[in-house]
Structure formats: C-alpha cells, structure tokens
Design a protein around this nucleic acid. Structure first.
Lengths: 243, 243
DNA sequence: ATCGTATGATTGTCGGACAAACCGGCAACC
DNA sequence: GGTTGCCGGTTTGTCCGACAATCATACGAT
C-alpha cells in the first residue's frame, strides 16, 4: 500500500519566462551590456502576454541580472552589483534574528585573513585607492553617517586588494549590517574615530610592505577593538540587529 | 558657473509598492507567516492597478520576502531561505568570473574557523544531526550527484552547529559553487570519497570532544585535501566556474 | 551650430475580462 | 463513517486593448 507520488510542480508562465531569460544570461549566451528586445517582441517570442513578460522582467531585475541603463528604455543584461546582492543577504540575516555578537564573530573570522590576502595580492593601484579611502575616513567629517560609510569603504578597498570576488561579496552584507551599530558606537565613544584611524594606518603599512602576518594581526586587533567599543558604548552584544 | 544638479530619481509605482511592503516586512510590522490581502485589495489600498501590484509582488517574491505556502493562494510573509539567497549570490559570483582558486581560497579562510566555532557551540542535537549527515555521505551512493549533495549537507550541519546565521549564510554560496567542480573531481579521483569520509569522521570526533583546535586543524586539512583532489583530477584552478 | 519640432518606438499604468484552482460546506452514496 | 460529487464564492494566472509620458532620431528653422 501507500503509493507515494511526488508533488507535481506547476510553474506559472512568468516564472518560466524568467527562468528562460535567466538561463541565457547565466550561460553567457546573452553578454553583459547586451540589450534585450522590447517587451512586445519578447511577448511575441515567448507566446505570452506583455503583462506576463513584465512580471518576469521584474523578477530578473530584482536579482540584478537585468537593469535599465540611464538613457535607454530597453533592459540590458548586467552582472549583479555587490551592493545589491549584499542588501538581499543582509535583509535575510535581519529577518533571521542576527545579533551584534553573530556579526562581530563573523568579522573576527573573515577580516584578518582577508587583510592577509590583501597584503599578498595588492597592486600599487590598490594601495593608492586604499590610501585615499583611509585619508577620506580620517578627515574629520562632521556627519557620523558619512564617517561610518567611509569606514566601510576602507574595508571594501582591502577586499578589492585581495582580488577575490568571493571574499568581497561575502564581506559586503557584514558591512551593511555593521552600519547602524557602528554609528551608535562612534557617537557614544569619543575616542573611537581616532582608534579606527590608527588601526587603518597600521593596516596600510602592513599591506604596503606585503607583510601578511602583520596585516592579519593588525586587522584582528582592529576587530577586537570594535568589541571594546561596543562595550564602552553600552551596546548589548546579544541584541538583535535592526535596519 | 557650473551649477550641478543631482540626478532626479523617478521611481515607477511598482517599485514604490514593493518598497512599501518590503519595509513593513523588514520592520516586522508584518510578521512571519502572516498572509497578505488579495491582490485586488492591495491594489485598492495602494490606489494602483492590480497589474502594478503583481509586478511588485514578483519582486518581493524573488527576494524571498514573500512566498506562497502550499495550499494557499494568498501570499504570506516569509524569511528568505538560505538556499534561495545563496543562489542569488552564487549567480552573481558566476557572472563575476570567479575561478576555482577564488572559491578554494574562500573555503580555506572560512571553513576552519567555522569548524572551531561548531566545536565550541555544538549541542547534542547538532551532534546527532552531523553524525547522520556523515553516515549518509559515507554510505556508498552510486550517484555522484547525490554524493556531492551529501558532502555539502555535512558542511551545512557544521555551520548549523556553530549557531551563527551570518557564517551559515556566508557559506551557502560557496557550497553551491563547489558542486560542479567537486562532482568532476569525485568522478576522476577514485580515492576522493574515502578521503572525504575519513576527514569527516575526524571532524566529528573533534566537534564531539569540543576540541576547537583539533576541529580547525582537521577542517584545514580537509580543505587542503580538496586542492590535492583538484590537482589529481587535472582541474585547472584558474578556470572559471560554471553553473 | 544650436534649437525646436515632428515622428516613431517603448515603457508605465490602467481597466476589464475570463478560465482555472482552491476553499468550505452540504448532500449523496457505499 | 468515510468517501465522493457538486455548488458557490474567492483568488490567481493570463490575456486583451488602450493611452499618456518618455526617449531617440531625424529634420528643418534660426
């Protein structure tokens, strides 16, 4: 007895259309920057209504596979931008009740090796970009929000210097999640900015000297310092992160 | 001279609607599992056409913020599943020309600390789940595809044992990207399966004993072994990953 | 050369329409 | 009693047709 059947999957047309276009993009049959035909033409090709095509396009758009370039109405194929993808991940994490401690632990694990990899792989151009980012971050900005943004930008520069997109993209949601709590921390702890700047300079020196061990160690201290900042700011590490 | 204006941003209605609903979900004004009103009602509330509402729903659906529970036509609020999010990230990475080496380097950095964290935080329930996953992976499956799937599942169990969603979600795209190349490797290297199983058993022992250092070390060897496998299988590490 | 205008293509949005699927309930039936 | 069949109401999936706004392009005027 007990004949078991698999759940028969019914797929709406808009998802089939999205899958068809998405598969072409992933397989690189459609190249980056290439422009898609107009919606009416797509509707004709797929044999569905324009409304159906539009629902499919919205899905691909939100995955970052399609975007509208300024000055063009036609959709064009694009590679998903780290900021976009990172936003999806950080939203997911927010809904999964991530705490400050989770985030800090992840930073502890990810960032020091990333700094080491950056020290190993950095080019002169990376070095220059990192130097500028650190200078911008050190410049006494009146606005806390921009100060936090620039701190995140320094991390991004380091990730870029490591020349590993996987690590860069893994880091992006962490930076986005870090923003609100870091803003509070900088606001409450007066010496936070100078400590961050000092750590960044040490990091820059280590990465410039291609000293992997030093880069790893300074970054580890930098992250540990964040924890101290949270304590000083009276931020409960077991608190859930917010948007 | 040279008066500079910011780019005036025009946002289509479907994106505004999506943003409005998404913001409610992120702020937890709409709780998990709660069901959204029907499309016609949403259209009435927002003062737009149903087609416009549908385009917005497609966007939220693809971000995993909404899903249709089986047996219900109404959309219900959901937290994005790691597999869904991971797919978005791995697609992005594929389009960013990620190589086997990038992936391997990321695994090298992420997995050993993850195993250590698992050793520290694991509960008896985690231990049991991990044991079962390893047993299932060790059982000689004829199918290479399922063998790879089960290997990935072991990694997921370890991440769950670490009780850190950030790390778990960071790992997910790596596992998805790993699949194709690992399949090739297992097919070409006869001893790969037994080496993987052996490493998993060592890991289980270390995690069971809550020996962080040992867990870290065995995982590091495990990942290094992957690299050896790639070499033996004749897989060029500078090759771009494929879907 | 710059500007204004006509023209065509394309999107954003709308209203309405209908079949199919699903739910709950109720009656019929073995 | 449990299963089956049927009915009405709700909701989605899909389609059709329509129109204003926007943009590209070409063309002509100043």
């Amino acid at each position: 007895m007990s004949v078991e059947f698999d759940r028969v999957l019914i797929e709406p047309a808009y998802r089939k259309v999205a899958a068809a276009i998405g598969e072409r993009i992933l397989s690189r049959a459609l190249r980056q920057g290439e422009r898609l035909p107009p919606e009416t033409e797509l509707a004709r090709q797929f044999g569905v209504n324009r409304s159906t095509v539009r629902e499919a396009l919205r899905e691909l758009e939100s995955r970052g596979l399609l975007q509208r370039r300024p000055g063009s109405k036609l959709m064009s194929v694009s590679r998903p931008q780290p900021a976009t993808i990172g936003q999806g991940v950080s939203h997911a994490l927010l809904l999964h009740d991530v705490t400050v401690h989770h985030l800090w632990e992840a930073l502890t694990i990810l960032e020091p090796p990333l700094a080491a990899a950056a020290a190993a792989a950095r080019t002169p151009a990376d070095l220059e970009a990192l130097g500028e980012a650190i200078a911008a971050c050190g410049a006494a900005a009146t606005d806390t929000a921009t100060a936090v943004q620039r701190t995140a930008e320094v991390f991004r520069c380091i990730a870029r210097a490591a020349h590993n997109p996987v690590l860069g993209l893994a880091q992006e949601p962490l930076l986005q999640l870090l923003e609100p709590s870091l803003r509070i921390m900088i606001d409450r702890v007066p010496q936070a900015r100078s400590r961050i700047t000092a750590a960044q300079r040490r990091l820059l020196e280590a990465i410039e000297a291609q000293d992997e061990a030093a880069a790893r160690e300074w970054m580890a201290r930098h992250i540990r310092d964040f924890r101290r900042g949270y304590d000083l700011a009276g931020i409960d590490l077991s608190l859930r992160l917010t948007a």
